[in-house]
Structures are given as structure tokens and as C-alpha cells.
Design a protein around this nucleic acid. Structure first.
Length: 484
RNA sequence: CGGGGCGUAGCGCAGUCUGGUUAGCGCACAGCGUUCGGGACGCUGGGGUCAUGGGUUCGAAUCCCAUCGCCCCGACCA
């Protein structure tokens, strides 16, 4: 990479060591810092602002589809968790336990929620009596604890923030419809607001949520060619309603167990945005979720405090009034050049430069983070142009990411070629699969690639194809990848 | 949880092998001055229980034991 392009020093280039680049960038850009506790991090204001934007934009969609927010307890009695054995088995290795309250040993251990199906199931049994009570459509924004062995900021931390939806329905079909509607909501949200293109589909038996009938997920492709699960939507069937006895009298006056769903996205999305859009100069945020959308850098020349600064302040005010997230960096101890690099590293989509020359000519200079293009515009048209350019950056980031995803999606049913691609290029590979877990596991052992999703739309000529691994008749066309 | 690597100022490191002045360097930080359209410069200054605990020794950042944390590669997950 030449000097012009690599303006930010002090960060390991992305191409050299992706995972070092990721960790250094997160700390240098002040998104997060390590807490003095194993596997835990502090989300700093600049990083938390992204989460707030995600919350705002997703919460709007959750409510628009008829869901309401509520809050359930952080602790779950052990006996609740034990009711659904499949569920417990899935989570037990990573549950944190509270055994003491004050000075007293507790009679029953309390789990710090790894997810809330159990406690919510208990409450739903109390609330649901009749088909008239259904559907129940509740969402909760909460923190979750999972005692993970290997952690990475945002991607996998011991405690993380998420949103978990929990719904109860009269029929299997209705629950299935909800599960898929949410999957589509997530896809649209992630692609529109985070500008990360995803592949949506169903999880295999092996990869699905502990205790679910079906799990659906959206998978993004990160810049190092690995897939990241960015959201899941589970059809829980009647597993939980049977153990928590969530019954209702249906329209025919028969007692029935409800059909349930649960679904979530987490602070992991922030990691996805970093890994999907960032470059050697640092972060690159889609305007929709960027902590700051516009950074104003006054050019400190001559008596700039009297000439440039007042105009810079006025521009800030006007942009703020227009609803943009904007900051004026008027610090005197840094040179403009330093600020350019710093804010580029921190991913601000658009920089607004204003200097003595611009003041005289009633103009400003706009510089895009994504293309580095410099655009000189008159003061009069500046506000309209800012809005227009931000929209364009949002679209451009999505298209760049989409092109990357497409260029790194391969199609092969030749196992040798498959192995070569996974080893040398990574990315998604579309292949045929017989549907047996044994084949899936062998492939994982031999290549480290896992089936990320089974696309909902399957080719009609599936019968003409054979399994990538065993050569027996294929059941599904699937996406493989090395995953995070 | 296995295998490997690393913990010395906020960050990056040297010093450890071969124990011995007051533990050093670059960046960052503070003060003053000159600068400022792509990471400016000069002068002055502050900052360290050498990860933690124990041991060996006249003497430990340095040797020994244990613990904790972080990173990388594998098995598990949002």
C-alpha cells in the first residue's frame, strides 16, 4: 500500500494481520477497551453510540411489526433451566452461577441469564389462558452472560448486549411465519442500516439453537473471508410450552400448548461493521449508524479564530438542526492534517473542511471517507450536498460489500476444489449436501468449513445433484464457510 | 479447554540468557513559544509497587515455583 493511501500509522495494516488490525483499531478508535475482568470489555461512548443507533433503528422495526418491549429478571433459578433438558445441555458449559446472596448461601443456585427462554416461559404460563390472549409479542433489550473460553471484543465477550424477542402463537404455521418475518426484518435492517449484505437461510440440525425446532440466521462475509452469524430467529415449537405448561383454550375449546419463537441480534453487529467496511486507514462507518456523520475541521491559519471559527460554528448549528450527528474539532493543539487522519481512522463518513480561503469564497470542502473524493461546494448548497453525499456513501458501502461478497462466493461440488478454496481464499462456497450430520461433521473436521445456512429457495433440479462429500443423492444446496 | 507466545510508564519496545549505580528509548501526556489546506518543531517537565504472590540470594525486572491476564492456532458459541 502506498503512502497516499495509508495515511494512518500505528495500526497494523488489515492485509498484514487481520485480527491484530481489528483489535488495535477498536482500541485506538475508542470503541471499546478491555475491562480488568477476563473476557469483558467496556464499550466506550464512541462505540456505545453505534449501539444506540442500532437500537433506535431496530426498535422502530420491532414495534412496527406489533411487538412491545418489556424487561425480565437477570437471574434464573436453576430448576427453571433444568426443565428443558436439551436447552440446558446446550447452554450449561457457559452459564455463570450465583450461589450466595449477602452472607447467606442460596438454597437454589441462580443462573445469570445466558438467554431468557426459561424465565419468560414461566411468566407466559401465568399470562396465557385463552386463544384471545394470543399472540404474545414481546421483546427485551438486555445484557447476557455466557462464560466463553475464547473472547474477542464485540464478536464474543463474556457479557454482551442484545435484543431478544419472545413470542407465543396459536398455531405452528403462525409461529413459523413470525420466525421468517423476523429473519426478513433482520436481513433488511442489516443491509439497509449497517450496509452489510447477508445470506439468509435455515440452520442445520447440528447448528441450530438448543431446544429449537428450526433456527434461521443471517450470515455476513467479513473482509478476511470468514462468515459471521449476525442474527438468529428460532421456531421453538412446543418444547418450552410443554415444560412450562403454557396452555390455552383454543377456538374449539380444546386445551393446546402454544407455539413459540425467539430471536435476537447483539453487540456483535458492531464487530461486523468494523470487519466488513474497515480498511488500512481505519474504520469506515455507514452514515446511518455512524456515531458522527460529519466532522468539521477548521483550517487554523492566521486569525482563523475570528474568521473561520464563527462560520464553522454556524455550519455545525445548521447541520445539527437538520438532524445530522456533527462535531466541530476546534482543538488548537492539533494540526488540521492530524485531525484529518484521526477522524478518518475513527470512521466518520464525511469531513467538512473550512479555511480562510473558503470563507472568502463563500465555500467549503467536503471529503468522503469511502472514496477520499474532495468536493468543493458553495455555502448555499452545502446542506443539501451533505445530505445527498451521506446517502450516497451509505449506498456505496453496501455495494462495495456486496461486490466483495459476490466475488468471494464460489460454487463447486468438487471436494478437492472445495478444500483448495477454503484453504486459499475462504469465502462462501455453494455446494450440494446429502443432509446427513455425519457428512457435515467430516467436512468440518477435514476443512474447518461449516454449513452456514441452507437457503430457503432451493433449486428445482436438486435430485440431479450429489453430496459434495459422500456422493449420495443431494438433499440441499447449502452455503459453507469458515465461521467466526 | 488443549498447543504455542507474551506481560517493564497510556501505547510500542530495549534491558532478562550471563543477578550488582538512580530501570532506559520512541510515541503519547503537561507548560511555554513558533506553527497549522494531509499525522509540525524547539525548549522544559511529569509519569514505573518491572502482572501478582511466594522462594533462592548480601543483593532480583533478571534465577526458581505458583497464580492471574492478554494474543495466536485448534474444539464450542450471538
Amino acid at each position: 500500500m502506498n503512502k497516499e493511501e495509508r495515511l494512518v500509522k500505528q495500526i497494523t495494516p488489515k492485509s498484514e494481520d487481520f485480527s491484530r488490525w481489528y483489535i488495535e483499531l477498536i482500541r485506538r478508535a475508542e470503541l471499546a477497551d478491555y475491562a480488568p475482568l477476563k473476557g469483558m470489555m467496556v464499550i466506550r461512548p464512541y462505540g456505545y453510540a453505534i449501539w444506540e443507533n442500532i437500537q433506535r433503528l431496530l426498535d422502530r422495526r420491532i414495534k412496527a411489526t406489533g411487538h412491545q418491549n418489556a424487561y425480565f429478571p437477570l437471574f434464573i433459578p436453576e430448576s427453571f433451566l433444568q426443565k428443558e433438558t436439551e436447552h440446558l445441555k446446550g447452554f450449561s458449559p457457559e452459564v455463570a452461577w450465583v450461589t450466595q446472596g449477602g452472607q447467606e448461601e442460596l438454597e437454589e443456585r441462580l443462573a445469570v441469564r445466558p438467554t431468557s427462554e426459561a424465565i419468560i416461559g414461566y411468566m407466559y404460563a401465568k399470562w396465557i389462558k385463552s386463544w384471545r390472549d394470543l399472540p404474545v409479542l414481546i421483546n427485551q433489550w438486555a445484557n447476557i452472560v455466557r462464560w466463553e473460553k475464547v473472547t474477542r471484543p464485540f464478536l464474543r465477550t463474556t457479557e454482551f448486549l442484545w435484543q431478544e424477542g419472545h413470542t407465543a402463537h396459536e398455531t405452528r404455521e403462525e409461529a413459523e411465519e413470525e420466525t421468517r418475518m423476523i429473519l426478513e426484518m433482520y436481513r433488511e435492517f442489516v443491509e439497509t442500516e449497517l450496509a452489510v449484505p447477508v445470506i439468509a437461510g435455515r440452520k442445520t440440525e447440528r447448528e441450530k439453537f438448543a431446544g429449537a425446532l428450526e433456527t434461521y440466521s443471517i450470515e455476513g462475509l467479513m473482509a478476511d473471508g470468514r462468515a459471521l452469524q449476525m442474527g438468529t430467529s428460532h421456531h421453538l415449537g412446543q418444547h418450552f410450552s410443554r415444560v412450562f405448561n403454557i396452555r390455552f383454550e383454543d377456538r374449539q375449546q380444546q386445551l393446546q400448548y402454544v407455539w413459540q419463537t425467539s430471536w435476537g441480534v447483539s453487540t456483535r453487529l458492531i464487530g461486523a461493521v468494523v470487519m466488513c467496511h474497515g480498511d488500512d486507514s481505519g474504520l469506515k462507518f455507514p452514515p446511518q449508524i455512524a456515531p458522527l456523520q460529519v466532522i468539521i475541521v477548521p483550517i487554523s491559519l492566521g486569525n482563523w479564530q475570528e474568521t473561520v471559527l464563527p462560520l464553522a460554528k454556524e455550519l455545525r448549528m445548521k447541520l445539527q438542526e437538520q438532524g445530522f450527528r456533527v462535531h466541530l474539532d476546534a482543538r488548537e493543539e492539533y494540526t488540521p492534517g492530524w485531525k484529518f487522519s484521526e477522524w478518518e481512522m475513527r470512521g466518520v463518513p464525511l469531513r467538512l473542511e473550512i479555511g480562510p480561503r473558503d470563507v472568502k469564497q463563500r465555500q467549503i470542502v467536503l471529503v468522503r471517507r469511502d472514496t477520499r473524493e474532495k468536493i468543493t461546494v458553495s455555502l448555499e448548497e452545502s446542506r443539501a450536498r451533505v445530505s445527498e453525499i451521506l446517502d450516497d456513501i451509505q449506498k456505496n458501502l453496501f455495494h462495495l460489500a456486496l461486490r466483495f461478497q459476490q466475488e468471494n462466493t464460489y460454487e463447486t461440488n468438487d471436494y478437492r476444489e472445495f478444500q483448495e478454496i477454503i484453504e486459499q481464499k475462504r469465502g462462501f462456497i455453494k455446494s450440494y449436501w446429502c443432509g446427513r450430520t455425519s457428512c457435515e461433521e467430516k467436512i468440518k473436521e477435514e476443512t474447518q468449513a461449516t454449513i452456514r445456512v441452507i437457503p430457503l429457495e432451493q433449486p428445482e433440479d436438486i435430485k440431479n445433484h450429489r453430496c459434495l462429500h459422500c456422493g449420495q443423492p443431494a438433499k440441499w444446496l447449502v452455503y459453507f464457510a469458515k465461521a467466526y
